[in-house]
Design a protein around this nucleic acid. Sequence first.
DNA 1: TTGTACGCGTTATCAT
DNA 2: ATGATAACGCGTACAA
Lengths: 347, 347
Amino acid sequence: MVGERPTIADVAREAGVSKGLVSFALNDRPGVSAETKTRILAVAKDLGFSPSLRARSLSSDRAFALGLVIARDPEIISGDPFFPAFIAGVESALAPVGQALVLSMVGDEASEITTYRQLASHARVDGVILSDLRRADPRIALVQSLGLKAVTLGHPDIPSALPAVSLDDGPGIQSAVAHLVELGHRRIAHVSGPSRMLHGSRRSASFAQALAGLDLQPGPIVETDYSAADGARATRDLLALADRPTAIVYANDPMAIAGLGIAQRAGFTVPGDLSITGFDGSEVGQYIHPALTTVTTEAQAWGRQAAEALLRVIAGETVDDIELTPATLVIRESSARPGTATIRSAM
Amino acid sequence: MVGERPTIADVAREAGVSKGLVSFALNDRPGVSAETKTRILAVAKDLGFSPSLRARSLSSDRAFALGLVIARDPEIISGDPFFPAFIAGVESALAPVGQALVLSMVGDEASEITTYRQLASHARVDGVILSDLRRADPRIALVQSLGLKAVTLGHPDIPSALPAVSLDDGPGIQSAVAHLVELGHRRIAHVSGPSRMLHGSRRSASFAQALAGLDLQPGPIVETDYSAADGARATRDLLALADRPTAIVYANDPMAIAGLGIAQRAGFTVPGDLSITGFDGSEVGQYIHPALTTVTTEAQAWGRQAAEALLRVIAGETVDDIELTPATLVIRESSARPGTATIRSAM
DNA sequence: TTGTACGCGTTATCAT
DNA sequence: ATGATAACGCGTACAA
């Protein structure tokens, strides 16, 4: 090995000072004369010195890394556009400050707990981003007890001392419902995510509220696990109803796209016989026929903000809850007046 | 702070032996009498001792983590089912052995290089998995020069000392072509990935080869960046051709689904007027109408094998190239004899 | 089996 | 106010 990397001792020797002083100079701490500091910095730069992350980790008891544990079936995550964009956002906040993201994907909730314990006991990360909040989410107490700093994505339904970085789904769902009602729909159904997940139950609640606010009967709500398979099943069930809905609000895009397929397969036209709306704005939604009316969220911004908030928490700052721009409706072709002939636009 | 975690010194004192011996006992190394070893292990367990990852990192100069750098537009990754499944596979190999995955997502190739340099200079990971291999991929030399252990996903097109963990796309593409030809198609086009990416150019090559092998004219190949948007554009272009193809083989599912939408929008029926096949087997492909004929790859197994191979490389073992089960065709509804009436199966 | 130096930065304590 | 010294964190490795 040729390139022995220089240590702080090398810098100290070369600059004719002590290790401690070099450390002080490098970390902008008082007690170093301007002149000496300049010299130390010059030598450090000259030698190409960069502190060993490992030594720094050991002595300062920090990992310089954040954790994200995704506890979902990979099959379901695969169809969902949320996490890649979210992670890209996290990355954009971490890269500039030399921090890293440790990602775990686990299938069940038991190994989820284990994973957090491992991250904490190995001190692999300084904090975690809690995504996919659940009802009375046990992770909130868990991370506290493990001494892990954390932020939550969205507001928990239980008291929490953790800063929440939230993006309100409500307005998006409500505009979708309002849009459909405006078009003349009266029997509107919702294919929701799992009710144990807060975004699942909150989107349902927003849906019900929106209908109630417009003095309409609550439409049927079918719960799913967010998978396309479950979205397909829910759609089949809804279309088999005696008073089948004329519109369905889906809790994510993969289910909406699957639902579209099921409806077409069953001989219904979309949006003629059935209007549908998605959630989360996948790219492919723009190109299917009819193009999917959906609700978009800024997942990337969410990731960046969550990571930045967590970094501040780790730095010891007090961080307030953060509210991002709410989800907004994007109207495309899959929603229309009930009974409209199928559109067939030119290419 | 109440729970001061026990150190190896605590265990040593309690067991009445030296630190060194405890280390030996814990790591199953010779030189410890069976009796003493049992006692040491008992004490360690009793005290709830687990070695500090940081101290181990510093003294043994290992990170106990693997890196994966994804250099693609998050928008494109979002639609692609590959990475989530792949990462889940990686995770399944790492979790049992206490290793972690450090994930980076970068937008451009410049920051990609920077990222590898950072990972190496901070010694953040012990090795990296090189995915999305490109023509004359500079990362192969880069990781060598940085002293990073690595495995490649697929065989590079340049000499490489790195073990390759490969899943052959060829048979999948070839069966797709053979399937279409068998159905009677003669003008078959390919919407490919970027030619600078090896899987992009290899799928194209397999496509061309398959046609040649069946004594057919090479069909048009339109190159894309794998995005649904580009898949849509390519489809529009192909359908506008004077001798438009009767079948299109897409290099991934999002493009195939977008292509389906574009074709339908332009008034073509699928598979009546146009047959299409996808690649990578997204879940939603089963539920669209018509259900997507596609080529599936076992991304999760790939992730597990790649991670395991890399761990062995890091452990100093000699690792041979690994070939996984090749991609296979799954025939569904989007492919049929040219000129067939659109299917409309019952629900 | 033991003792101890070592890896490398951080920080508390001292000296000037 | 500047700077030096040394202890510290915690395993690992090697000489004894």
